[in-house]
Nucleic acid binder design. Structure first.
Lengths: 204, 204
DNA sequence: GCGCCATGCGAACGTTCGTGCTATTTTGAG
DNA sequence: CTCAAAATAGCACGAACGTTCGCATGGCGC
């Protein structure tokens, strides 16, 4: 790994953390250069444009997300353990010190939701893949006889997503110390209702 | 209402819609002036600073939120009807043409969650009040014998909040046409589980 | 209908932004 | 050790930002 690549990684690391606090748009090349004691043009030279920097930040974050959230969970057996691992890792990801401003994908989703372009497209794909991963884990949980056979996997992913989003807002804006307790309660409720084993008749 | 106040309202109206798309930080006085065919200094004169403008935008949006979401719901009888009205009005608010970029409070919450200052404080209070309104409606639903007597009203508010946030993301970033169906399904599930009437034994 | 004061304009300020150039320094292969 | 190539610095640009100031002007109370 040449020196340039080392610098590039350093920049991306810092940029990712900065973007989690200030948003992808709040990222500025001058700020990055100042923080890392580089020249503005030195930083700029590693990326052809600010837009390219934003995209690479998203991809850099995705690699970490896959490595710390998805991959470990997929090493768990299908069913309850994998579902719970996805959830726990996700919660830990949003709280990690590595992202001082909270989940960068949540921040970016709000920021980019009506700003068409390649950056949005990148984020869209990341989020879509994540949804699919959750839904796929739900389908595997059905096969593993953990979830009810009539489970709507996409609906499960939707509800899981909402629960974690609620956690993110409650923790980060409202600073509610009960946020983690609440999110776990909500998830248990979702699991209880989706899983086999004593659950309501839930007609139709 | 003097001329100045009329202009001020026009500015705030446009600023609110702009902020819903670009964020409170993306708001720029020059952009506002251009759109409204005013001079930059003319716009600026109505507010002492950009920060004051941001705060007034939030308060302007809150008035609308109270008027179109909360007040009509509070005119419904306690219990199921009021709970459903809160939910329906909220969904409609997030979809309304009046907010072309989606709920401005959601956008602002992400943007401001780690940027201390008076703007964040204003939003914090708005969101806290909204949480309290939901929880209070849940308590009223308990009194009205719609919700189970052991209902945790704050937990209900948390879950309702998460469900709607999931809707917001699914609709706005993923553009999933099934978003509205999903959010209604999730809410029905929450209601079924919280309300009296055939519900699971839900031990402990 | 006079006169004042709210209202808005125009120009300018110092910064910061992203983005080009052209040098200069640093790196690593032969 | 040499020298081309890679990496970074330096400088400048045009544009946009929030903010300030002095000046015109027109709406409205008296």
């Amino acid at each position: 790994m040449g020196k340039g690549e080392v610098t590039r990684n350093t920049i991306l690391e810092h940029a990712t953390q900065l973007a989690s606090r200030l948003g992808l748009d709040g990222l500025s090349i001058g700020r990055l250069a100042g923080d890392l004691e580089l020249s503005k043009s030195g930083v700029f030279a590693h990326f052809q444009s600010k837009e390219a920097l934003q995209i690479q930040v998203l991809e850099y974050a995705r690699e970490h997300f896959v490595g710390t959230v998805i991959a470990p969970a997929l090493r768990q057996p299908r069913g309850e353990q994998r579902i719970r691992a996805l959830f726990d890792n996700w919660i830990a990801w949003g709280n990690s010190d590595w992202l001082p401003g909270g989940c960068i994908f949540v921040a970016a989703a709000i920021e980019l939701d009506d700003q068409p372009g390649p950056v949005r497209d990148t984020l869209f794909q990341i989020q879509k893949d994540w949804f699919d991963t959750m839904a796929q884990a739900a389908r595997a949980a059905v096969e593993a006889k953990y979830f009810r056979p009539d489970t709507d996997a996409d609906q499960f992913a939707f509800e899981m997503y909402g629960i974690v989003l609620g956690f993110h807002h409650t923790l980060r804006l409202l600073r509610d110390p009960a946020a983690e307790k609440r999110v776990r309660l909500a998830f248990e409720r979702l699991l209880r209702q989706t899983s086999l084993g004593r659950q309501p008749s839930q007609a139709s």
